[in-house]
Write a protein that binds this DNA or RNA. Structure first.
Lengths: 164, 164
DNA sequence: GAAATAAGTCAACATGGCTGACATAAAATC
DNA sequence: GATTTTATGTCAGCCATGTTGACTTATTTC
């Protein structure tokens, strides 16, 4: 009997608990993304540009396809944003040496500076929340968020995190 | 000395750890919000409609101002979305009895049905992640997300959660 | 040599944010 | 009681960022 119960609902989860989890994610994401907006506006950029800066910084030399797969947007949507960043000298595109069809993405020096500046308030917010919550809570945070990611991508994200 | 260290960086947080926390939030939110989209499309609705359905369901009788404060969008942005939901009979607006300027928001029966249907995959995703991660991890998840919310709103959210 | 792939581009459209200006009704204040 | 403030609604237009569809070019793979 215990088996059946725990299989069906291992934590005796109420709808209330679930909905609170949903709301917390909404609120946290809302405030978390609001941080960089003012700085971005100075350059005429938006959140989409920030995302590109973040992921290219994290994965120097990544291909356009890889970036598209992470962002889950279309090539045409990315083109506008990426084009602006390249045009204004924040991102450099090198031809791949193995596969010369590829355009490998790198932040330029000014791109790195911009990324750091734009991300700073976001990093501070996360650092503060981590510090206040404690190491154990952080482990739980990571575990649950990881479980929220679609199963197909979970492994590759875990690998990309472990690789560092 | 230990005091100084722990004040500055209580968890010995590396930039890598912080950035992983940021990315996990991005990935989780990306997949978490993708769930309801297909169902919403049947009605010609989008994510904005879903948010309204969710919060009116959670706070029956809430005012337009309260909803605006939660969503952090302008009155004009909300008007489009809320207007469509009212027009199609998913949300009812009652005049406030204490303050008759207010329009108190309620889901109609079909609104409740729609909310349940649209939210179902999202709830399932959170329930699964909670179940897999375990009760302790969930507590940590909540603690960290709560810390990510802007301080001004933290208390009122805590209260609205405890009230249930 | 043909087919598949990586990337780019043009055009058109939808969603959901935004600002600014103004209107109405009701409540609160002087 | 007149005035001011508040809650809500509405018109008009703009912008950022997503979408689909069609087509091109260079390169790699078969």
């Amino acid at each position: 009997m215990a088996d059946i119960k725990s299989q069906a609902n291992p934590l005796f989860l109420t709808e209330e608990e679930i909905r609170q989890g949903i709301e917390l994610l909404f609120y946290a994401y809302r405030d978390f993304t609001s941080d960089p907006d003012e700085i971005l506006a100075e350059y005429g950029f938006g959140r989409a540009h920030h995302r590109v800066l973040h992921f290219v910084n994290r994965n120097p030399g990544m291909t356009v396809s890889q970036l598209l797969a992470i962002l889950r947007i279309t090539k045409q949507s990315l083109a506008r944003v990426l084009g602006a960043l390249v045009e204004q000298g924040f991102i450099r595109q090198d031809q791949g040496s193995v596969d010369r069809r590829q355009r490998l993405l790198y932040l330029t020096e000014s791109g790195e500076a911009l990324e750091r500046r734009v991300s700073a308030p976001q990093r501070d917010r996360v650092a503060r929340a981590y510090g206040e919550a404690g190491a154990e809570a952080v482990a739980g945070y990571r575990k649950v968020l990881y479980g929220l990611i679609g199963p197909a991508e979970r492994d590759s994200i875990l690998k990309s995190i472990e690789r560092r």
